Simulated scan of single mutants.
Amino acid sequence: MRDADGTMPRTAGRCSTNESGGSVHMSRISATPSGGAFAIEVVSTGTGKIVVGDFTETFPMDLTFWDAEHYEQSWAKALRRLEEADVATSCLVASITDPKTANYISCWPLYRIQGTVFVQNSLIILNELNKVFDPERPWLSTDPREIVDEDGNKISEWRTGIENVREFRAASG
């Protein structure tokens, strides 16, 4: 994945939370913010695409645990969660294998603060969770929003408006 300026981002360590009584470990990737449109979709077998403002990224989707339809259902549920409150955390699973044997889950954490939705790219490190990962509620393993990692590096973040998320949900059914 490349930043908006074409450079390669740096992986930025782990962070922890006291949410749900424990520490959650995620690796985050650094980049540049933007605003505007929003979309996430399956574009071909095993490939997804996310659009946040002027940022567009294609990503591999493992199809051994979930099929494309399950990813889409999970994304719809995660986006609906953002509409439940003015401040909300959710998570779009980008790629998942069986959590019982996997090392990590690739995801796009979503953080709604009033009318703005911040999107980051992360890995949920499964063997460092304090509880079993729930693939139907991945936001339970998502850390609170941070903009700088433990080493002082800026964490990748793109932004869009909640109205763009609502428009996407309405258009995608």
Score class of each variant (00 low, 15 high):
residue 1 M to P: 01
residue 4 A to N: 10
residue 5 D to R: 13
residue 6 G to E: 12
residue 7 T to S: 03
residue 8 M to S: 07
residue 9 P to C: 01
residue 11 T to P: 01
residue 12 A to C: 13
residue 15 C to I: 10
residue 15 C to T: 09
residue 23 S to P: 00
residue 24 V to N: 02
residue 25 H to Y: 10
residue 25 H to T: 06
residue 28 R to C: 04
residue 29 I to H: 07
residue 29 I to F: 14
residue 31 A to N: 03
residue 31 A to P: 00
residue 32 T to V: 09
residue 32 T to H: 04
residue 32 T to D: 06
residue 32 T to M: 06
residue 33 P to S: 05
residue 33 P to K: 06
residue 33 P to F: 08
residue 35 G to V: 12
residue 38 F to K: 07
residue 39 A to W: 02
residue 39 A to K: 00
residue 40 I to N: 00
residue 42 V to G: 00
residue 44 S to H: 01
residue 49 K to E: 06
residue 50 I to E: 03
residue 51 V to Y: 08
residue 52 V to G: 06
residue 54 D to V: 13
residue 54 D to N: 01
residue 55 F to D: 07
residue 57 E to Q: 06
residue 64 T to N: 10
residue 65 F to Y: 14
residue 65 F to L: 07
residue 66 W to Q: 06
residue 66 W to T: 04
residue 66 W to G: 05
residue 68 A to K: 08
residue 68 A to R: 09
residue 70 H to F: 09
residue 70 H to M: 11
residue 70 H to Q: 14
residue 71 Y to N: 03
residue 71 Y to K: 02
residue 71 Y to E: 05
residue 72 E to C: 11
residue 72 E to D: 04
residue 73 Q to H: 11
residue 74 S to P: 00
residue 75 W to P: 00
residue 76 A to P: 08
residue 76 A to N: 15
residue 80 R to W: 11
residue 84 E to Y: 11
residue 84 E to D: 10
residue 86 D to L: 15
residue 87 V to T: 04
residue 88 A to M: 11
residue 88 A to Y: 04
residue 90 S to W: 09
residue 92 L to M: 01
residue 94 A to P: 06
residue 95 S to K: 06
residue 95 S to M: 10
residue 96 I to D: 04
residue 96 I to Q: 08
residue 96 I to W: 04
residue 98 D to S: 06
residue 102 A to Q: 01
residue 102 A to D: 02
residue 103 N to H: 08
residue 103 N to L: 09
residue 103 N to G: 06
residue 104 Y to V: 12
residue 104 Y to P: 00
residue 106 S to Q: 02
residue 106 S to F: 06
residue 107 C to I: 10
residue 108 W to F: 15
residue 109 P to G: 07
residue 110 L to D: 05
residue 112 R to C: 04
residue 115 G to L: 14
residue 118 F to L: 13
residue 119 V to Y: 09
residue 124 I to D: 02
residue 125 I to P: 01
residue 127 N to S: 15
residue 129 L to E: 15
residue 131 K to R: 15
residue 131 K to G: 13
residue 133 F to I: 11
residue 133 F to K: 08
residue 133 F to H: 09
residue 135 P to G: 10
residue 135 P to Q: 12
residue 136 E to L: 10
residue 136 E to G: 11
residue 139 W to C: 07
residue 140 L to C: 14
residue 140 L to E: 15
residue 142 T to F: 08
residue 142 T to K: 04
residue 144 P to Q: 12
residue 144 P to H: 12
residue 147 I to L: 13
residue 147 I to F: 10
residue 148 V to L: 06
residue 149 D to N: 02
residue 149 D to V: 03
residue 151 D to A: 05
residue 153 N to F: 08
residue 154 K to T: 04
residue 155 I to C: 02
residue 156 S to M: 12
residue 156 S to Q: 13
residue 157 E to K: 06
residue 158 W to E: 09
residue 159 R to G: 12
residue 159 R to V: 14
residue 161 G to P: 05
residue 162 I to E: 02
residue 163 E to V: 12
residue 164 N to Q: 03
residue 165 V to A: 00
residue 167 E to H: 05
residue 169 R to H: 03
residue 172 S to E: 14
residue 172 S to W: 15
